[in-house]
Lab assay of single mutants.
Amino acid sequence: DYYEVLGLQRYASPEDIKKAYHKVALKWHPDKNPENKEEAERKFKEVAEAYEVLSNDEKRDIYD
């Protein structure tokens, strides 16, 4: 669930989505996790995908 990936509720505002994305993206950035790079890359891609969908009103409506 994209909301879960970003740690958000379904009623999150666009500002909340952006803030959550930056927080979680920093947490899972591969450069910040050199000891667990493969998992970090996978999680970072999930976070980016979730943000791409939830930050676009049209894609978010379809997802919801």
Rank of each mutant, 00 (worst) to 15 (best):
D1S: 13
D1N: 15
D1E: 13
D1I: 01
D1F: 04
Y2F: 11
Y3E: 05
E4P: 00
E4N: 15
E4H: 15
V5I: 12
V5K: 09
V5R: 09
V5W: 03
V5N: 03
L6F: 03
L6A: 02
G7P: 00
G7F: 02
L8T: 11
L8R: 01
L8S: 05
L8V: 15
Q9T: 12
Q9R: 12
R10G: 08
R10I: 03
R10H: 11
R10E: 11
Y11R: 13
Y11G: 15
Y11C: 14
P14D: 06
P14E: 13
E15A: 08
E15N: 03
D16N: 04
D16V: 02
D16R: 03
I17P: 01
I17L: 05
K19R: 12
K19S: 12
K19G: 08
A20L: 00
A20E: 03
A20Y: 01
A20C: 04
Y21T: 01
Y21E: 01
Y21C: 00
Y21M: 03
H22V: 14
H22G: 13
H22A: 12
H22I: 09
H22L: 12
K23Q: 15
V24M: 10
V24F: 11
V24N: 15
L26H: 12
L26E: 11
K27R: 11
K27M: 06
K27Q: 09
W28C: 13
W28P: 04
H29M: 11
H29S: 12
P30Y: 04
D31S: 09
D31C: 06
D31F: 01
D31R: 05
N33F: 09
N33T: 07
P34T: 14
E35T: 10
N36Q: 08
N36I: 08
N36T: 08
N36V: 06
K37A: 10
K37V: 11
K37I: 11
E38S: 13
E38W: 06
E38T: 11
E38F: 08
E38Y: 01
E38H: 08
A40S: 10
E41P: 02
E41Y: 08
E41C: 08
E41V: 11
R42T: 08
R42H: 08
K43A: 09
K43N: 07
K43M: 10
F44A: 13
F44E: 05
F44Y: 13
K45E: 13
K45W: 04
E46C: 06
V47D: 03
V47M: 06
V47Y: 04
A48N: 14
A48D: 05
A48S: 15
E49Y: 02
E49F: 02
E49K: 15
E49G: 06
A50D: 00
Y51L: 02
Y51P: 02
E52C: 07
E52G: 12
E52F: 07
E52N: 12
V53D: 00
V53L: 06
V53G: 01
L54R: 01
L54N: 00
S55K: 09
S55H: 07
N56Y: 01
D57M: 11
D57Y: 08
E58L: 10
E58V: 08
K59V: 03
K59T: 11
D61T: 12
D61K: 14
I62Q: 15
D64G: 04
D64S: 05
